[in-house]
Design a protein around this nucleic acid. Structure first.
Lengths: 214, 214
DNA sequence: ACAAAAGTGTTGCTGTTACACCCATGG
DNA sequence: CCATGGGTGTAACAGCAACACTTTTGT
């Protein structure tokens, strides 16, 4: 007995202090005009990882080298056409991708302001996003690095963190905690975008992030 | 294009302060005499959840009503016979099950002292166990309740916790933290098994466990 | 010079660690 | 009465929360 298996790729990025997710506009029926998680049927010669990386490349033209698991959705009627098991892949990327020119059927959305979503993808996004948020809040380890692989300012990072956490934090205390744990390295550079005093650009110190919690 | 999909069920339990896992002895070839994670091919009329619950029932004769996701393993050559995607289901149970008479091809093992394991199941156990340990350590929420659904003594819980954590903790401080967070309710009962002073039996206070960390 | 955003220190409080002795039971 | 495991309190310390003003830039 065999099953149809689709691999759905949820791409997350931090942009403007918001947690954003990449969706694809559906042109065909059913759910024409609705948005969906990009994906493909998994053929018998492809691993989940390869499929996820290829999907990402098709959309963004960028090659990444890792992915995370987002679970399995196997309800019998989740697709009207035929029973299809969805396995979820998650790729976390940085805001360069959000600002980059991509395929024009795709777009990033704030996870708190989603458009009309096709199939059970709304439910999938909700569950997977909850997991991702927990990972961001629960421990620094590697996932934050994926959101901020290169330089960022502390206020920028803090806005994102507060957005995920769902409440705001005192600037001084936030900074202090980051600093005393030696989580970041001062690059010496400054931002100069827009009004106000420029912020110092930091980079995560990979060697000091193991197992630390916020 | 369709795929063979197997659902593998990893059952965890806390017993004697150890994290234990249920395995099944393999009688057929290949890997005759090796132990494996119990599982079944997923047919097109069954959800992962139903399959996991049925597998558990077949082995223990007990009906449970929940399961957790343990990820997907999709390497092309993970089974020699044919390409098979493994989706992992996790059920956490209590030590009553460990002591209960079960089907005689299955047995619980300390996760730190496993027998010879068939296929890639060793690798699967390792990855999934790491996740489960992180959940136990990271936050109380619901997973500890599954390990200790009914009465337990603090020393018993502490031994298990230390085993998962990989180091020991001062008894007084452990007790204090549990108490000040009102995580448990004194049942008024005592244990009387074996030598030494009997321990007080507690039960988790479900209403006070939300989002607390250890 | 003013608006906008970044940066900085101190104090009280709360939770964590370290540590040694007494208590209840079974043999 | 002794061996075994369970239960308790206190004091030093570290991490966290609360709080207001100064600095740097663009306009």
């Amino acid at each position: 007995m065999e099953n149809k298996v689709e691999n759905l790729l949820i791409v997350y990025a931090a942009d403007g202090g918001l947690l954003k997710i990449l969706l694809q506009k559906n042109d065909g029926e059913p759910y024409k005009g609705y948005w969906m998680i990009p994906g493909e049927e998994l053929d018998s010669k492809t691993t989940q990882e390869d499929s996820a990386i290829n999907l990402f490349k098709d959309i963004t033209s960028v090659t990444v080298n890792g992915f995370m698991q987002g679970g399995v959705f196997s309800d019998l009627d989740r697709k009207p056409e035929s029973r299809t098991i969805a396995i979820i892949s998650v790729i976390v990327t940085d805001k360069e991708i959000v600002e980059m020119k991509m395929r024009d059927d795709v777009c990033f959305f704030d996870v708190n302001e989603l458009p009309k979503i096709a199939y059970d993808h709304g439910e999938i996004i909700e569950k997977v996003t909850k997991e991702v948020k927990d990972k961001i809040i629960g421990n620094y380890s590697n996932i934050l690095l994926k959101f901020f692989p290169s330089d960022f300012t502390l206020p920028e990072f803090q806005k994102f963190y507060e957005n995920v956490l769902g409440k705001s934090i005192d600037r001084r205390n936030f900074r202090k905690k980051i600093m005393t744990q030696n989580l970041v390295i001062d690059t010496g550079e400054k931002t100069s975008n827009g009004t106000g005093r420029p912020g110092t650009l930091y980079r995560f110190d990979i060697s000091n992030m193991k197992g630390k919690k916020l």
